[in-house]
C-alpha cells in the first residue's frame, strides 16, 4: 500500500464529501419521487477495465438484458451518466483516469465496484504487488460491491438492485430463491 500513496490521495473523495448543492426547496415527497426516478434510470458510463467488462457487456445483451430495468443507456460521456461500473483491475497507470472520470460525472452519482480486483485487488493483492490499486474504494467512494472473479451477470443485476435499494430505501424486485444442493 505504501507504494500507492504517490498516486492515491487518501482524503481525495470520500462518500458524502463530494460537492453537491443542497436543494433550495426540500420537499419530502418531491425528493422521494426524484429518488425513484434516479433509481429507475441508472445510466452507466461506457467504461470497462478488464475481464469483468465482458460480463458487464453480457449483462447488457439479450439473455440478461439490463434494459429491462432502464439501465441499458451506456452513455459515452461521463457528464450524462449516473453510475460508474468499475469493471476490472485498476492499474496505477489507470487510477488518475478513473478518478477524473468520476469527477467529470454530474451528481448525483454512484459507483459499483465489480469483481474482486476492483474491490480489493483480488488475485493481485500480494506483497510483491507494484502496479495494481488494491481496491477502487481507496480512490473514489463506492456504493455497491459485487464480488466474484468475474461476477456472473446476475450478480451485476443484483448489484443494480442493491443500488436501487440504497437510493430509494426499498427493494423493488423479488428475491430469487436459493437453489438447493
Amino acid at each position: 500500500m505504501a507504494a500507492q500513496d504517490s498516486v492515491v490521495q487518501k482524503e481525495f473523495l470520500t462518500a458524502g464529501n463530494h460537492y453537491m448543492d443542497p436543494p433550495i426547496v426540500n420537499l419530502k415527497l418531491a425528493q422521494d419521487i426524484f429518488d425513484i426516478c434516479r433509481a429507475m434510470s441508472l445510466w452507466p458510463v461506457t467504461f470497462g477495465l478488464a475481464c469483468c467488462a465482458i460480463e458487464m457487456m453480457a449483462t447488457g445483451m439479450a439473455r440478461f438484458d439490463l434494459a429491462r430495468f432502464g439501465a441499458e443507456v451506456f452513455r459515452p460521456s461521463p457528464r450524462q451518466a449516473d453510475v460508474m461500473i468499475v469493471a476490472g483491475t485498476v492499474n496505477k497507470k489507470m487510477a488518475p483516469a478513473v478518478v477524473r472520470l468520476y469527477e467529470q460525472m454530474a451528481g448525483p452519482k454512484w459507483v459499483i465496484a465489480m469483481g474482486n480486483c476492483a474491490i480489493s485487488g483480488g488475485p493481485f493483492k500480494s506483497k510483491d504487488n507494484y502496479g495494481v490499486i488494491e481496491g477502487v474504494d481507496t480512490l473514489i467512494p463506492v456504493n455497491v460491491y459485487v464480488p466474484g472473479c468475474p461476477p456472473r451477470p446476475e450478480g451485476l443485476l443484483e448489484g443494480f438492485f442493491e443500488l436501487q435499494r440504497q437510493i430509494t430505501g426499498k427493494r423493488w424486485w423479488p428475491v430469487a430463491a436459493a437453489v438447493e444442493g
Binding site: 429507475m40 429491462r68 430495468f69
Partner: peptide, 23 residues
Amino acid sequence: QRRPGPFEVGPHGALQPLIDGLK
C-alpha cells in the same frame, strides 16, 4: 436485438421515458 427492452418500469416499461426525463 432479441431482447424485451425496457420492461419493468411501468407496464412493459411504458413509464421509462417519463422517468428518464424527470431524472
